[in-house]
């Protein structure tokens, strides 16, 4: 799977595909938890809602920027694929954008508007988060189905939409377990327990459907000896799920020990599932139609961006860590002072 590093036309598309894949994964985990918190919003009391907002307030802008980077990399590194994918997904993309607009502004408006408008913005925050998650899940489903648009693929995409929304609620709950305490934390543990099924069914559905849709992917996974090398992936995922299930039955632990663990394990689980998907589709950027090499921009242009990315991405990682460190610990209500 490794490219020829002596040939820029070979390794640059590969490097950009990796970078784009990484940004999508980071996005799914980070915006996943704050979208999830939005989806769980109506289940909490007003006071708890302020705490929930407090737990994601300093981060959500930066989390969403990973989506901009991911789609930006698709745009600049694989322009042909960008056009093909986004025109095929015109409507779900639109729904996602409306969702992102609603939740992003509701976040700010709810804190500043008059009291009797706050209810409306709270509702829009939930609706926007849910729309975004469903639309992303729907796009994931259609992408797996090779962007074919038939009744059957729509049905599958609807399933993945629901599973992803529940999956986001799950990672959102694990975030809240870490960032809250008391009654809200106990609630979050319960939400986590109750939404774990979405993760299991989601990963299961995608794992079953991908090889069935494409014989190429089927062969990639289930021929010998690949099946041996790849076996740890599903086995590890299964173990992580078991671990999460056991943890969530016993949490919160005495003295709030290891409250970060469910989020960390959930992240590992998301990452494993994601690596499995990436393996299935590589080297295609549009499933079975366009490889990353066919879709890539000119190597000269990619190189210019690559140099910048090498310098800037570590810096971004550095100050992101700084921000998460500054706002570590249990969430408080947000204050501009």
């Amino acid at each position: 799977m490794l490219p020829d590093f002596a040939n820029p036309a070979d390794w640059l598309p590969w490097a950009f595909a990796s970078l784009m894949g990484l940004s999508i994964l980071i996005y799914v985990v980070l915006d996943g938890f704050d979208l999830g918190v939005g989806i769980l919003f109506p289940l909490a009391t007003p006071a708890e809602q302020d705490k929930m907002i407090g737990s994601i307030g300093p981060f959500w802008d930066a989390n969403e920027t990973w989506l901009v980077l991911a789609v930006g990399l698709l745009l600049v590194a694989f322009p042909a694929a960008h056009g093909m994918i986004l025109t095929a997904l015109y409507l779900p993309v639109f729904v996602m954008l409306v969702g992102l607009i609603l939740r992003g502004v509701a976040f700010e408006f709810r804190a500043k508007a008059r009291d009797h408008h706050k209810r409306l913005w709270n509702r829009l925050f939930f609706v926007g988060s849910l729309m975004t998650a469903l639309a992303q899940g729907f796009m994931l489903g259609l992408y797996i189905m090779g962007l074919e648009q038939t009744l059957a693929t729509y049905a599958f995409a609807t399933l993945t939409a629901v599973f992803l929304a529940v999956g986001y609620s799950f990672i959102g709950s694990t975030w809240l377990i870490h960032k809250t305490e008391g009654v809200l934390q106990a609630k979050s543990v319960r939400w986590g327990r109750e939404s774990l099924w979405g993760v299991i069914l989601g990963i299961g559905a995608v794992s079953l459907a991908t090889p069935l849709v494409s014989t190429r992917i089927f062969d990639k996974w289930l021929s010998f000896p690949e099946v041996i090398y790849l076996a740890p992936l599903p086995i590890l995922s299964g173990l992580l799920i078991l671990w999460l299930w056991r943890m969530l039955r016993a949490m919160p632990y005495a003295g709030d020990a290891r409250s970060w663990l469910p989020f960390a394990v959930a992240t590992a689980l998301f990452a494993l599932a994601y690596v499995g998907m990436a393996y299935s589709f590589y080297p295609y950027v549009v499933p079975d139609r366009l490889t990353i090499y066919e879709a890539a921009s000119a190597p000269e242009s990619l190189f210019i961006i690559f140099v910048g990315a090498c310098i800037v991405v570590p810096v971004i990682a550095g100050y992101s860590v700084l921000a998460y460190t500054i706002f570590r610990g249990k969430a408080t209500e947000l204050r501009y002072d």
Binding site: L73, A77, I316
Partner: peptide
């Protein structure tokens, strides 16, 4: 492409974080 990429890399993350 590179111009937009540089915007995301040098500006967006700086602001957002």
């Amino acid at each position: 492409g590179p111009l937009l990429a540089y915007e995301v890399l040098t500006a967006f993350f700086l602001e957002a974080v």
